Amino acid sequence: MQFGIFSVGDVTPDPTTGHEPSERERIKAMVRIAQKAEEVGLDVFATGEHHNPPFVPSSPTTMLGYIAATTEKLILSTSTTLITTNDPVKIAEDYAMLQQLADGRVDLVMGRGNTGPVYPWFGQDIRNGIDLALENYALLRRLWREDVVDWEGKFRTPLKGFTATPRPLDGIPPFVWHGSIRSPEIAEQAAYYGDGFLHNHIFWPPEHTQRMVQFYRQRFAHYGHGTPEQAIVGLGGQFFMRRKSQDAVREFRPYFDNAPVYGHGPSLEDFSSQTPLTVGSPQEVIDRTLSFREYVGDYQRQSFLIDHAGLPLKTVLEQLDLLGEILPTLRAEFASRRAPGTPDAPTHASLLAASKAKIEDASVSSVSSVSSVGK
């Protein structure tokens, strides 16, 4: 089980002080948060990709490359890589470069994003969102797995004898999760390829998350990748934690009430009861997080959003310290409840080992066949 955090990189005024960080402040804060994540023992840091205010992470690989140079173990990921408006050739090259620099500590989450105006900025039409996601990802897979690609599709110019450079590290492409909140077509895509499926899980009730994950698991098995329980699942989540529950609620309320996404809507209490948002004590965060398994089954990655809505860096770092304190309990409890045979989250090392084992098995089978013919 991997635990991590993700950031959407919003630049939001602190409602309690009125301070609005500069873009530089926010970018530097995201870097410090990632470094702190490694310090407290987390496995993953993921950044969003946005091309519109009030967000700053328009170039995820630039940020993750910098973080790679200042960390040693942290897996560097995205909470969304825009497969719809980015050229798959550029994605292939940018993330292979990052993978080489980070010694394989890279995976990414493909998504369509949630900002409609981005599409025309990059020469696309939002009405083609699903078709773009399907076609662009099909090309991206080939670019990472084939040294020379001939290709023709609907949404970009054809490729003839094209080689993306650099090639993936050790011939192993970064592992891909497909992120979606509401689109079964994306869960189907993840299942078709045997990739991971990440449900953001921060705005919707558990019943919706359960339906999406179950659909992905069933389709994963349908395509012959294994049993439903062997499908690779990730969840989002969010919390605000203090030693005493009442202190957490009192401190977080103004941030919730003024948040860009859900501010000025449902009350904190209503939103917390209807979604996975947990505002309370460390034990409450532990109990709520462990409950996710009850409706999605055993899963491989849990990522939390903790640096949004204008929360100051000092507060976010305190949240990470508290998360670090409960992390051993979360790891132990998830491990003790885990069903036998549940796969681990793929890493570059595990994918490389599996590739070598497959080659060795093929070699042994070939030798056995030759020997049989000789007899």
Rank of each mutant, 00 (worst) to 15 (best):
G297M: 05
I306M: 05
Q218V: 06
P343C: 15
Q302P: 01
G226M: 12
Q319Y: 03
A231N: 09
G237Y: 02
T275H: 01
R293I: 10
E229G: 10
D270N: 15
E284D: 04
D321A: 01
Y223G: 08
D247H: 12
M241V: 08
G236C: 00
A231L: 11
P276D: 08
A248T: 03
P260M: 13
Q274W: 08
P340T: 13
S336W: 02
V279Y: 00
T227I: 04
G265H: 14
A231P: 09
S273D: 11
P254W: 05
Q238F: 00
F252L: 08
H308T: 10
D247R: 08
H222P: 01
G263L: 11
H308I: 04
Q246W: 06
R242N: 06
T289E: 04
L327T: 06
S273I: 07
A339G: 02
Q238C: 06
R253Q: 12
L313K: 09
V285E: 03
H348F: 11
A345C: 13
T347R: 10
S291H: 12
Y295G: 13
S245K: 12
G236N: 00
Y262M: 09
A259G: 11
Y299G: 00
P282T: 11
R217H: 11
Q230E: 15
R250C: 02
G226N: 11
Q302V: 05
P266H: 13
L320G: 07
D321T: 01
R338E: 11
V249G: 01
T347M: 04
S303Y: 02
R217W: 09
K314N: 01
D270E: 14
Y299P: 07
Q230L: 02
L290Q: 03
T289Y: 00
M241R: 08
L320T: 02
T275L: 04
H308D: 04
D307K: 07
R242L: 12
A345W: 10
A221S: 15
F239E: 02
E294T: 15
S281T: 08
T227H: 10
E229T: 14
S267F: 09
T278D: 01
R293P: 00
F304M: 07
I326C: 06
I306E: 00
R338W: 01
T347D: 01
D287A: 12
S272P: 00
L305Y: 01
F271L: 14
G265R: 14
S291V: 06
E269A: 15
P276L: 08
Q238N: 03
I232W: 02
V279W: 04
V261R: 11
E318V: 03
V279M: 06
S245A: 14
L317C: 04
R250L: 11
Y216L: 00
A231C: 10
L327F: 01
S272E: 01
H308L: 14
R242A: 14
S303R: 03
K244T: 06
R250D: 10
V279N: 02
G237H: 03
H225N: 11
R219Y: 02
G226H: 12
Y223Q: 04
Q230A: 10
F256M: 12
R250F: 05
S273E: 13
V233Q: 01
P343W: 06
S272I: 01
F240C: 05
G224V: 10
P254I: 09
H348C: 13
R301E: 00
E229W: 12
V261G: 01
T227L: 10
I306H: 04
I286N: 10
I232Y: 05
R293E: 08
R250H: 09
G236W: 03
A345M: 15
G263F: 06
